[in-house]
Simulated scan of single mutants.
Amino acid sequence: MPVATTISSPELTVTLSDLGAELQSITTATGDELLWHGDTAFWGGRAPILFPIVGRGPDDRIAVNGQEAPMRQHGFARHAMFERAEVTPDSCSYVLRDSADSRAAYPCAFRLTLHYRLSGPTLSVSAEVTNTGDSVLPFGLGFHPAFAWPLPGAGDARHQIRLANGAEPALAHLQDGYLMPERAPSPFAGGILPLHHGLFDRDALIFPDGAGEALIYSAPGSAAPALHFAFHNTPNLGIWTKPGAPFLCIEPWHGMAARAGAGPEIADRPDSLLLNPHATATFGYSLRVV
C-alpha cells in the first residue's frame, strides 16, 4: 500500500504519496487546502508526474527505435511505486528506476528522481531524468498539479492567470487527445487570461511556446491567496479542467501529445528530448503562496 509522507514549514504543510511520487495536499498555516482533493466523480488525479510521455500516443502506443508497445496517456510513472530516497522535516526525495515491467513497454534504462522541498511559503518541485544506459533516451516529462478553483477565500471573485512576460501565446487544440497543427488566437490579452469553464469545451488549453517562465493564479480583489509559479526547463504549458469541475491544472511540460496523424515514435513527438548515455536533465517548478 502507498505510504504518505508529510513535510512542513511554518507557512505550508505538504503531503506526498509513494505511489507516483504524487502530491496529495498543500495546506496553509490557516488550514486552507490549495490542492485538488482527487474526487473521482470528476478526476481522480491530484498532481501526477508525466513520464516518459506527455499526452497520448497514436492508438495509445509508443515506439522506441521501432520497438512498439502499448502505453497509456501520460506514461507509467504516475502509476508506479517510487522508493523514498531521503526524508527531512522540510523535504522528501523519491526514485524510480527501470524494471523488467517498464522495459517491456519502454526499452530504456533510466532513473527518475523527484525532489520536494519547502522553504517558508514556497514549495519547490524538481525532476531529474538520468540515462543509465548506453543508448540515447527519448522521453517527455511533465508536471500536472491541480489546484482548487475557486481558491479558498475567493468567494464569487473572478479568477485569472497572469503571465509574468505579459505575452499572448498562440493556442493549440487537441482532437481526440492528439495535438492539432493549427494555431488559434491567444485567449490571453496583455498576459491575462480571465478564467471560465467555457474555455475548456475543447479540452485543455495548450501553449506550445511563448508562455514564459512564470505566472500567477489568483482571484484579484478577494481574500484568496495568490499562487506564484516559476518554471525551469518546461517550455510548454497546459491549462486544464473538466467543465464544471472545481479544480484547475497548471501544467508545465517538456514534451507534448503526439501530433494528429503521426507515428508512435517518442523521438518524433513535439519537444521530446533525446538524452545521451549517462547524462541527466533537470526540470521543475516552484509555487510561492502569497
Rank of each mutant, 00 (worst) to 15 (best):
D59S: 15
E182H: 15
S102C: 03
E68G: 08
D60F: 13
T241Q: 12
G57E: 08
E83G: 12
G238S: 08
L114H: 04
G255C: 06
A224P: 07
T282H: 00
I62D: 11
E213G: 11
A69I: 04
W149Y: 15
P150Q: 11
F283D: 00
V64Q: 05
D209N: 11
M71H: 07
E83D: 14
L273E: 12
W43H: 08
V3C: 08
T27R: 15
A223T: 14
A230R: 13
V64G: 06
Q67Y: 02
L163W: 09
F82I: 09
E22M: 03
P194I: 03
P264H: 13
P270G: 09
T6H: 10
P252N: 06
S286K: 05
G238P: 03
T234S: 14
R56T: 13
G210Y: 02
P270R: 04
A258V: 10
F147Y: 14
P220Y: 12
G44V: 09
R288N: 04
V3Q: 15
P138L: 04
P145Y: 01
V87W: 00
L35Q: 01
R61W: 09
Q175I: 12
E86L: 10
E265T: 11
G133C: 01
V14K: 00
L163S: 06
P208H: 05
A257P: 07
R202H: 13
P10K: 07
D134Q: 08
T6I: 11
F143L: 10
R103K: 14
R103N: 10
L215G: 07
F82E: 06
P194D: 12
V289F: 05
E33G: 09
R46C: 03
Y94I: 01
P10R: 06
L34C: 05
L195M: 03
P70G: 09
T122K: 04
A157L: 09
P107L: 03
I250A: 06
G263Q: 12
A184Q: 15
T130D: 03
A257L: 04
A127H: 00
R46N: 05
V290H: 15
E86V: 02
S8K: 12
T113L: 10
L227P: 01
A21F: 00
P58Y: 07
M180K: 13
A104P: 00
I49R: 02
A279S: 09
H197T: 08
L163G: 05
D209Y: 02
D90L: 07
L179V: 08
